[in-house]
Design a binder for these strands. Structure first.
Length: 274
DNA sequence: CCGACAACCTGTGAGC
DNA sequence: TGCTCACAGGTTGTCG
């Protein structure tokens, strides 16, 4: 489900709901999602720790405790929210962190169970986050920096935008949207982008992501923020999921192709190479 | 190094 | 109504 705008929305809403609270217990119904730790190990390590902060790096949610860090990745269908503790949680509630006196739980809902929840020492957490690339909304990347980073990359630019070690946080929706804004053919080999195209990409990435964030992200199917809000950016998609519709810029027809096993949407008329 | 593909999972919607 | 298939916001690993 979530790319940077959705994860950032989740973090901002979660923060006031959980920071300062003490984790009283933890459980999971899908041990595979916990990485190396068993359910019992996770529970014993987080028990009694106060939540110090909730932040984001790329698509990871970083929950800092007193003696370690919980890293949550929502993957496709994950969602975090706080609600009253249920005696028999719905089957899609795959994990929970019981808070304070036990009346409320920080739930992890994840129908597809592809998400991950890991508990790490701060050193381990930093190491795993360090492989991520630029933060699109915090680091200003110049066309020259981008061009240099893409120098040896022959793959098409759109799938390259999904590489989290370049920019962290761009996913399949915004990769297509960014290419439309920058007027770049998503099939262009990354190392063949002109200087002007790199400049436009560097503008388009923060522009698209920050507008999406302002709208609370995009809601496809069931995406919902921790407070239960739906994002609104899906109303402003220029190309994503709009095959055969007309381009807002030139009236051309929007196409769908598959790159690296993911759908790509673009205008066949105004997103030309060069 | 690169691209293609499978795998990890469940749910939904379209088409027949 | 019920079946099958394609597809879904992500990432990782294998193979040629």
């Amino acid at each position: 489900m979530p790319e940077l705008p959705e994860v950032e929305t989740a973090v901002r809403e979660l923060r006031p709901l959980v920071v300062g609270r003490v984790i009283r217990g933890a459980w999971s119904t899908v041990p595979r999602q916990l990485g190396r730790l068993t359910i019992r190990q996770l529970a014993s390590r987080v028990r009694g720790q106060r939540i110090g902060s909730v932040t984001r790096r790329g698509k990871y949610i970083v929950i800092e405790l007193e003696r370690g860090i919980v890293l949550v990745h929502l993957r496709m269908t994950g969602r975090l929210f706080v609600s009253p503790t249920e005696a028999k949680p719905h089957v899609h509630l795959r994990a929970g962190f019981v808070l304070d006196d036990g009346h409320e739980t920080l739930y992890f809902k994840d129908p597809r169970t592809l998400g991950t929840i890991g508990y790490y020492s701060s050193g381990e957490a930093i190491d795993s986050l360090n492989v991520l690339g630029w933060e699109p909304l915090e680091e200003s990347v110049t066309g020259a920096m981008l061009r240099d980073a893409l120098r040896k990359r022959t793959q098409a630019i759109k799938p390259v935008l999904l590489d989290q070690s370049l920019w962290a946080g761009i996913g399949n929706i915004y990769a297509s949207e960014v290419c439309w804004v920058a007027q770049i053919d998503p099939r262009t080999p990354a190392n063949r982008l002109s200087a002007a195209q790199c400049d436009r990409l560097c503008q388009a990435v923060p522009e698209v992501l920050s507008l999406a964030l302002e709208r609370g992200g995009s809601s496809l199917r069931d995406f919902m923020s921790p407070e239960g809000n739906y994002g609104a950016y899906q109303k402003e998609f220029r190309v994503y999921d709009r095959v055969d519709e007309h381009c807002d810029r030139c009236g051309g027809v929007i196409k769908r192709i598959v790159q690296a096993q993911r759908s790509t949407y673009f205008c066949g008329t105004c997103q030309k190479r060069r």
